[in-house]
């Protein structure tokens, strides 16, 4: 994966950084609004909160960490980590929720 020398030291310009920061602040407020509305959202509440967190995370990764301007390999490497985390959760959860229910010890 050859990168021309011009790309290697890509500078994320100030307006982009500023807009990202403002978006992040805004989304944090949105998270709180979703939280206060959780009685209306019901079980969707946590999902919404995490979706918003996911968007925030993506913004931090793309612009603050510069992944948007970085090589495909670095993006792939980072994404791989999340995938395997999902795997650990998925199969552990599969086990626990397919067990024959027994009253817990408490």
């Amino acid at each position: 994966m050859a990168q021309s020398n011009n790309d290697v030291h890509h500078i994320v310009e100030f307006p982009i950084l500023m807009k990202t920061a403002l978006a992040l602040f805004g989304l944090t407020f949105l998270t709180m609004i979703a939280f206060w509305a959780h009685s209306y959202l019901g079980p969707l509440g946590p999902i919404v909160a995490f979706l918003i967190a996911g968007v925030k995370a993506a913004l931090v990764m793309m612009y603050f960490m510069g992944l948007k301007y970085d090589s495909l390999m670095n993006r792939f490497i980072f994404a791989l980590g999340f995938f395997f985390l999902l795997l650990l959760f998925a199969i552990s959860a599969l086990d626990i929720w397919t067990r024959v229910p027994v009253a817990n010890t408490l």
Binding site: T31, F35, P46, F50, I52, A53
Partner: peptide, 11 residues
């Protein structure tokens, strides 16, 4: 922390 915050404080 972006994930920890909703997880602990909100969810």
């Amino acid at each position: 922390w972006i994930f920890l915050f909703p997880l602990l404080y909100l969810v």
